[in-house]
Design a protein around this nucleic acid. Sequence first.
DNA 1: CGTGCAGTTGAGCAAATTCAACGCTTGTGG
DNA 2: CCACAAGCGTTGAATTTGCTCAACTGCACG
Lengths: 226, 226
Amino acid sequence: MHSQTMTVRKSQTHPATSLPTQSTHGTGETIEFMGAVMPFARNAEIYGENEPAEYLYKIVSGAVRTYRVLNDGRRQIGAFCLPGDVFGLEVGDHHSFSAEAITDCKVMLIKRSSLVSLATRSPDVARQLWTLAATELQRAQDHTMLLIKTAQERVAGFLLEMAQRARCTEAVELPMSRQDIADYLGLTIETVSRTLTQLENAAAIAVPTSRRIVLRNQAALNRLNG
Amino acid sequence: MHSQTMTVRKSQTHPATSLPTQSTHGTGETIEFMGAVMPFARNAEIYGENEPAEYLYKIVSGAVRTYRVLNDGRRQIGAFCLPGDVFGLEVGDHHSFSAEAITDCKVMLIKRSSLVSLATRSPDVARQLWTLAATELQRAQDHTMLLIKTAQERVAGFLLEMAQRARCTEAVELPMSRQDIADYLGLTIETVSRTLTQLENAAAIAVPTSRRIVLRNQAALNRLNG
DNA sequence: CGTGCAGTTGAGCAAATTCAACGCTTGTGG
DNA sequence: CCACAAGCGTTGAATTTGCTCAACTGCACG
């Protein structure tokens, strides 16, 4: 129940650094084309809890974790973000989570203020913004359902979720460490590790390397998922 | 780990039943005035998981629980809704939770379709809708943080949350049963009960009646909250 | 007065955590 | 190129936490 956090260096306070793929105007305008892409190194902080929420973030490549830390050091990961995912959306004007790069990654930064003002003029953008929040809500609710289950169910559920998001029923390549998984599932690294070997012994999965999990019996995993 | 569900009777498939407080037109239009109020009896189902999401619901009086049931019967309560709260908001067009009246209550029904179409014309309504989803997201995330804590922390956190929502630091009148609390916190009724007596023995709270909790030492509760 | 429901309490048990040791890989400096 | 330290993951043993099962209380309602 400790959970370490080891942010490396904050790659400066991101003023749009590269590739100004600026907004396309016209009818079909969408969130996609309003930002600048910026690279982050593995373990770099993208933003911190309580910092002003100036941007919205969309992952181009790599993976990101969002998390909160309790006052005694326990860390809860709120979401793993993969290419195409948007994160950093907030109700108020401050971030309620921190975000770090799990791997080296490229992230598109979208100015919140311009998006909001655009939304008042374009019902289409407003709808996209709403869909984003609602989808995020869905994910948070599903995450909640994970946390009431047994260790086996959580791990099985996690693997299935990852496989689904990677659109690959065969195997998953996990970008994150056991500690990250544990902090996402509300377990310890030891329990995650033990549970994976249990699933392996039960012939539900195979673990050729620690970051690669082959889903050998998806039906069994679904059964375990609760 | 059983969690009973005992829906009484579904009070018909709600076609706007009473008080047609119809929409006010003009500049300051808001979600508030677009619905009809409808009463529900204690334990009545308001809507079920997977039913089409035709309405948005705003509580006028009483309390409501939203929940999901896992295939083995475990129930997870997603939220307790109190007067002023809105629930039933969905990403897709079907409900992903069920909703039941905890106590006899009055709920305002707002047609989703009219709200959505209004949102495309009124940026103000669109913003309200977005805020609603984002606030709900916030709540779900806070709920997630509860579920990684110890039993004491969950119960303490729950009591503080309830006190805050009732805007009363003195005491809380709980509308829901121990089973509801347990299913919200991911614990058993026995653990909830035991934890309450522990907190009572520690002089953090007093429990004059089982539904009424006096917060005797809020600082201690905050300390326990993690 | 009995029945049923909600809540509490106790004893034993199962699951997950804690603490500790160990193996494997990786990267670094001599 | 090798030696060694550091990080990550796995495994084992002891402990703790919360769950299961069961009995029991208080209260409301017929």
